[in-house]
Amino acid sequence: MAPPEILSLKGVRAGYGEVAVLHGIDLSLARGETLAVVGANGAGKSTLLRAIMGQIALTGGEIAFEGRTLARFPTYHRTRLGIGYAPEGRQLFPGMSVDENLEMGAARARPAERRKRIERMFGIFPKLAALRRTHCGYLSGGEQQMVAIARALMGEPRLLLLDEPSTGLAPRVVAELYASLASLLGTGLAVLVVEQNARAALRFAGRGVVFEDGRITAQGEAKALIADRRVVSAYVGGLATPEWAGAPTEG
């Protein structure tokens, strides 16, 4: 009997060298749940995903996937356990075609199974079907992001981690991307999306978490957060702290 929680973080601390980035994060995700982590640059969102994938070592706390602590597993093993990861910067194989990129996502599956899964991906991202022989280095940003997500899905994960999928994409492309993602839901797949583009992510997700300086400063139902001034202030800043807003500038 699997526990209801697919992912749980308890007091997670992590950083780079002597610089601490995450200051004790508690977070959990249920099976099939969608969670958006939003916040400004440098708030620690990507670091959170790197910690979950074992790209950086924890300095404290614990991360468990399906009740099993992840500490001793290297990144590739976590993927094999059932976590799909589309990292920051997409990390595609530019010299390989779309087909081959997807193939690598299920390198350990049997060839027939691999082909079946690839066809399934083209069902989710129809645009990619026509580009299957194209080298990924020549795709547009939106197409590359689709390949990155599809590749993460090729391993048939139960949890999907997306790191800033909308970076550098025009608003229309972002909408298209999230529409494709929405079609994935309802199959029990849990999604944790880290986003700078708060609105797109919060509209997509069921629940939202706001990060500021490596801490969670607000959380709740995603739709409610969209309108929350605290979210706006975490990004653009200031709207929630009006003491300077109309003040004359220093001279």
Partner: peptide, 9 residues
């Protein structure tokens, strides 16, 4: 990193 995310050792 891309390879590791594909489960490759």
């Amino acid at each position: 990193l891309g390879a590791a995310s594909c489960g490759l050792n």
